[in-house]
Design a binder for these strands. Structure first.
Length: 480
RNA sequence: CGAGGUGUAGCGCAGUUUGGUAGCGCGUUUGGUUCGGGACCAAAAGGUCGCAGGUUCGAAUCCUGUCACCUCGACCA
């Protein structure tokens, strides 16, 4: 009874099943990933959230380098004249650009955009750095923040300023640019699935949904636990759309001057939001081991008793030296139960308890965050045992998310089926390719086309919307 | 951007209808006892009531504006 009374004073997060949005916001704030900043729509990432981002960055950056990319740092301000050079691009971004109009007390003769994306800046610099076919391909990436003056914002999912990477590459041929575009999409798929334990659908965007100024846009789309899609990364093939106005040219082997074929690809801190909404549960965040700031937390039990803290410190050293990101929570003002709840909220994959009883038995008690399964591991080979468990947690989290995604993805053959299916997940449907049908579906169901999978094996022959002949397989769903 | 809701101590809330100078619990600090699922006792600190104007002798409370967050919708790579 006393215990029940206490529950009232305990800070709980809103149940996920009751209000998904509120649950998300609670988790983000209470797990101390970020806080709202005093600028409209902007956030301050706190150490825990920043560490997650660093781990995602490391996983991606490694793959970027393995595929031959180099990092650069471009200026944050872009002169308006540069932004105006590609018509479709300007039209797409103009409504959400923040401008610098004054430097010190001097009013600028040309206003400067705070970069919403850096195609124009990269193209400008590439035009100076590329002369010959020997300079190609030129494959650069930058880690930075960009600003888009968004009307409605949500932590990580859509903020006015956000942190991301943008890769921009220049190639001699269309084939090579297309190869690059798909290669980087595959990198995103791999990071999502193997690192974030988050299954995705990879495919091509419709013309309606493609990037402003791109010839083709590809995306990886993840599924959140409310059945909505979240675009987790995009890769674009620009062809020569930008290289023409920006005059990014090279002298080819045949002695003629040619325009470069360009790609760009980006992914952002939105991935953190995606992880939360893919894996989180009633107790809060649930992090896949590969991006968990702490993969295991050691909790001393009855820490005042002889030898407990000392043993915990030894175990910490042992795990730390084995390359495991481990935390020893030796705070003496909190009860074990309190700590259990806090680390669960923060999503630590594995909890290790070490108390007098464990020490006597030569084991550490553990609990997995993903399944809540409890057990013991021998202390003398703890690092091996922990690593094995972490690998299993990573695998099982992916499997669980994949099962959810599969359950919530269905082929539909009629408009009514489509309408039903997008209430709870993805609908795979035949589509005639017309903008009108996309608009209709959006209008009537609020679902949008997500992407066309690379496997275009038809599941019918008529458009789910207009009934006309259709040869495109398209995923539709509500989206963030 | 439209409709609705909420802003009071670090967190969760009461007080607003009917103006009179702010309260509860958790947390925090100190001391002690505890420790295997949100411990207990005692003492203490902590708030210009989101912000800016206005009405009034007096505003958390009434009026206007504004900002932030939440829900639903619109918009958005």
């Amino acid at each position: 009874m006393a215990k029940e009374a206490k529950q009232d004073f305990v800070q709980h997060i809103t149940p996920r099943s009751e209000n998904f949005s509120q649950w998300y916001t609670d988790v983000v704030l209470k797990a101390e990933l970020m806080d709202y900043a005093p600028v409209r729509g902007c956030m301050a990432m706190r150490p825990y959230g920043t560490r997650i981002w660093e781990l995602i960055q490391a996983a991606m950056d490694k793959r970027f380098k393995e595929t031959g990319h180099e990092n650069v740092a471009m200026p944050m301000l872009i002169p308006e004249s540069l932004l105006l050079k590609e018509a479709e691009h300007v039209e797409g971004f103009a409504p959400e650009v923040a401008w610098v109009t004054q430097g010190g007390s001097e009013v600028l003769t040309e206003r400067l955009a705070i970069r919403p994306t850096s195609e124009t800046m990269f193209c400008t610099m590439y035009a100076r750095w590329i002369q010959s076919w020997r300079d190609l391909p030129m494959k650069y990436n930058q880690w930075c923040s960009v600003m888009r003056w968004e009307k409605t914002t949500r932590p990580f999912l859509r903020t006015s300023e956000f942190w991301w990477q943008e890769g921009h590459t220049m190639h001699a041929t269309a084939e090579e640019a297309q190869e690059e575009t798909l290669q980087m999409l595959e990198v995103y798929r791999e990071v999502c699935e193997d690192v974030l334990a988050m299954p995705v659908f990879a495919g091509q965007k419709s013309d309606k949904e493609k990037f402003a100024g791109a010839r083709a846009t590809y995306s990886v789309e993840a599924m959140m636990q409310d059945g909505k899609a979240l675009q987790a990364g995009t890769s674009h093939n620009f062809g020569t759309n930008f290289s023409e106005p920006f005059e990014v040219q090279f002298l080819d082997k045949d002695g003629t001057l040619k325009h470069c074929h360009e790609t760009s690809w980006g992914s952002s801190t939105r991935l953190i939001g995606a992880v939360i909404m893919t894996h989180g549960d009633e107790r809060g965040l649930k992090l896949p081991p590969q991006i968990a700031p702490f993969q295991a937390v050691i909790l001393p039990i009855a820490a005042h008793k002889g030898g407990v803290i000392e043993r915990c410190e030894q175990v910490y050293q042992q795990l730390h030296e084995a390359g495991i990101r481990v935390k020893l929570d030796d705070r003496d003002n909190l009860s074990p139960g309190w700590k259990f709840n806090e680390w669960e909220l923060k999503g630590v994959p594995l909890r290790l308890e070490i108390g007098p009883r464990d020490i006597e038995n030569g084991v550490a008690s553990y609990m997995r965050r993903d399944t809540f399964e409890k057990g013991t591991l021998p202390l003398d080979s703890l690092a091996e045992g922990v690593k094995e468990l972490l690998n299993d947690i990573q695998r099982s989290m992916f499997a669980q998310a994949k099962a959810f995604m599969d359950e919530h993805t269905k082929d539909v053959h009629s408009y009514e089926e489509l309408r039903q299916q997008v209430q709870t997940g993805y609908a795979r449907a035949m589509w005639c390719g017309s903008r009108a049908c996309e608009d209709n579906i959006k209008e009537e169901t609020s679902a949008t086309s997500r992407n066309m999978p690379f496997d275009q094996t038809p599941i019918g022959d008529s458009c789910v919307c207009c009934g006309q002949k259709a040869d495109k397989v398209m995923y539709f769903s509500k989206a963030y």
